[in-house]
Design a protein around this nucleic acid. Structure first.
Lengths: 227, 227
DNA sequence: TCGATATCGATAGTATAATATCGATATCGG
DNA sequence: CCGATATCGATATTATACTATCGATATCGA
């Protein structure tokens, strides 16, 4: 049975997109936006690869995943690529989100206006500290944790952002799940799993410790390589 | 010629550790620290895997990379594992670092005291905005960008953290490189490459957009799965 | 004391993603 | 007008990481 809606057709195409490709998409998007503002209409994989320090073949395969077709010797249409990437990443339809933990990191993320352009609109923050409750941080109200669940259900919030210390991460996650949240973007040092929140909640852990571990490791190796 | 120092011997063992394993190491460390404070002396891969929602085989292979030997039916000694992980990750000898960009995100990272426990000690921040220069943020002084290069060389700083907007990232990176910095931890939306800073500078990009892209994508897929 | 069993360590197999190869195509320069 | 060439798209190969299998080992309980 053929699907007539663009929505489902797109899903069908994009179902097989590997996550490494998804991770590179924002970089392509940023670069293409730059070309677009310079008035460039077409661009080749070779050029993109040179600018982003990637392999041309990899770029070609990644862009093919968006469904955009290129022309030999010319390349891909810039505008179409940008649109296709935005569709694949879901940046065309933004989602509202709640944030838990209005500390240093939480405030920084609330102040990061760029998220709105990439599909995330944080509409309220929550904290257990009564001294923070009631304040506004970057135009976003800080509310008491007790109000989270009901408000989330009422507003049909699907995404929760966790920016609390490790000790509070599990409680924060469970509060979000009680509110019916479907996806959690977790910045706490405790890596959340399906064991914490149930396996049908989507979790994306941003592990700064992992990232730093790789950096320090590579630094140690170069030092060892040049004695 | 045999090496008598523990340093080089360790490097030899750990040279082959895959980066995915390195990325999981901080989670193991955190979990093991919890066991240690509970007084547990030995732990099996099975138990670790269950708690962290991983495969036991994967945990066993990861831990084997540290050189720690386990005992059948009993498991691995907790203390030894912790020490081995700290050695592999370089957390035993912390490095001093400079931070560029004392805005929201920069302040948050300066306030993140946990980094000191994992090998990173930020000793100074830099900013182009004269209104920020001269202030203290979480006990770290904010200095003028012009002072960066000389001070970095004088203090033999090896690591730089970039928390500036995308437009300023390349300049920030180049300033760090002029100061002789060897490794850059980049939080800006612009992914830095060897083309920006020269190919012998180590770069670790923390791409929040990539992380969010994966989250939103997975969310979109579950929605499509249940119409 | 001795067998049952949980676990380790090593080897083998599988899945995934990165890279290479090659024909097809259409533009650009002569 | 026509050949040289840059690029695309598809297929094939390689590299990497993850998962499974199996014998060896040592503890625990009967």
């Amino acid at each position: 049975m053929p699907n007539l809606t663009g929505q489902d057709e797109r899903e069908e195409i994009s179902h097989a997109i590997p996550y490494p490709t998804i991770r590179r998409m924002p970089a392509y998007h940023r670069y293409l936006k730059g070309l677009q503002s310079d008035g460039l209409a077409m661009v080749s994989c070779t050029r993109i690869a040179e600018s982003l320090d990637l392999e041309p073949i990899q770029v070609r395969k990644d862009l093919a995943m968006t469904g955009t077709v290129g022309r030999p010797r010319i390349g891909y249409p810039v505008d179409a690529l940008i649109g296709a990437i935005e569709t694949v990443l879901g940046w065309d339809r933004w989602s509202e989100a709640f944030l838990v933990g209005a500390g240093n990191l939480g405030s920084a993320i609330l102040g990061y206006r760029a998220f709105k352009a990439i599909g995330l609109n944080i509409v309220a923050a929550f904290d257990i500290d009564p001294r923070r409750v009631g304040k506004m941080i970057h135009d976003v109200p800080v509310l008491a944790m007790e109000k989270l669940a009901n408000l989330a259900r009422r507003m049909k919030i699907r995404i929760g952002v966790i920016t609390v210390p490790a000790e509070a991460a599990e409680d924060a996650a469970k509060a979000l799940v009680r509110g019916g949240i479907e996806a959690i973007w977790n910045f706490s040092p405790l890596a959340l799993t399906g064991l914490h929140v149930g396996k049908d909640v989507i979790i994306e852990n941003v592990s700064l410790a992992s990232s730093l571990a790789v950096l320090i490791r590579r630094l140690g190796q170069t030092k060892a390589a040049q004695p």
